[in-house]
Design a protein around this nucleic acid. Structure first.
Lengths: 159, 159
DNA sequence: ACTGGCTGGTTGCATAAGCAACTACTTCTA
DNA sequence: TAGAAGTAGTTGCTTATGCAACCAGCCAGT
């Protein structure tokens, strides 16, 4: 029943399982309550937190693919949660910002996010969580450093 | 340049970034060296570790979707890394086992896996790594427990 | 032994996500 | 200031991945 093999002790595997479970749980919550995907949620979180910005800024902030950002923005615009204003500085891009609807949703969304985070990691001390962050950060930087490329998006180095 | 927002402190987000980076790095390695995907690699790891078994056993051991297991097995069989023997106990299934080629590859693959794991997490003590495992395990069980379903495979509760 | 329900495996369909290519605009350089 | 080169955004294509549906073989209860 339980996988008692070498695989189950393999840390990258455990990391993948935990990430999938957590992401899946959160995705389900946002999808059921507000019909938002994770990319859409991330864009809303950043716009609500930092105010109007271009898609380029959003890709930097979220570390998502520019296509993912674009598609998320399109959906948010169609749902009238965000709107695009002309960018005076650069005619190629627009400034994205939350609408009143979007701001209202953002105000509901963030508390739930923090609540879920707290629930998922309850029972661990502040120090343990900081160590956890440090380990995650280190694993990520080691993985990226080993190849010099950004591996977070399915580009398996086979351009 | 750097994302200095609330999002970047959100633990599920950090977890996702780390997992993607690590998985991407490992996937690249296996793909470049042996042309194996992660599901294929996992199946080989389990078969090499625990010997012949059915696809059903493999889904239990790897915690992957049965379709993913099936497709991985099909590829391994076509590449003559694994073969299917009739299952005396149950006419619906077959027993999968590594071929000589498969065993030879397995013998190369596992050391590299452990080496990569060591590299990714070098600089942390044994205790820190055990705590890391515990945190990952806890996050996973909390996420699964919250919904009572298996969320690891993209089923976002919308059956 | 037969029938209904169950389970392992397989296939097809739908969706998500990434890359390449393209357009429109900007910026650099001569 | 004209042309070259670079960049933001967009669209289309390809691949990966999950679920639903299906088939074949197993196993109760009768």
């Amino acid at each position: 029943m339980q996988p008692a093999s070498l695989l189950s002790r393999f840390l990258p595997y455990q990391l993948s399982l935990a990430s999938n479970a957590v992401s899946g749980r959160i995705a389900m919550e946002y999808r059921q309550r507000w019909g938002l995907s994770i990319p859409e949620w991330r864009v809303m979180a950043v716009l609500g937190d930092a105010g109007a910005m271009t898609q380029r800024d959003l890709t930097k902030r979220t570390l998502m693919d520019k296509v993912a950002v674009n598609r998320a923005c399109k959906v948010l615009e169609e749902r009238e949660l965000a709107q695009r204003a002309p960018n005076e500085q650069d005619g190629r891009s627009h400034l994205l910002e939350l609408t009143e609807n979007g701001k209202a949703m953002h105000a509901e969304i963030m508390p739930l996010a923090l609540e879920m985070e707290a629930k998922l990691f309850e029972g661990f001390s502040h120090d343990e969580l900081e160590l956890f962050r440090a380990l995650l950060e280190r694993a990520r930087s080691m993985a990226e450093e080993m190849s010099g490329e950004d591996l977070s998006k399915g580009n398996y180095g086979l351009k």
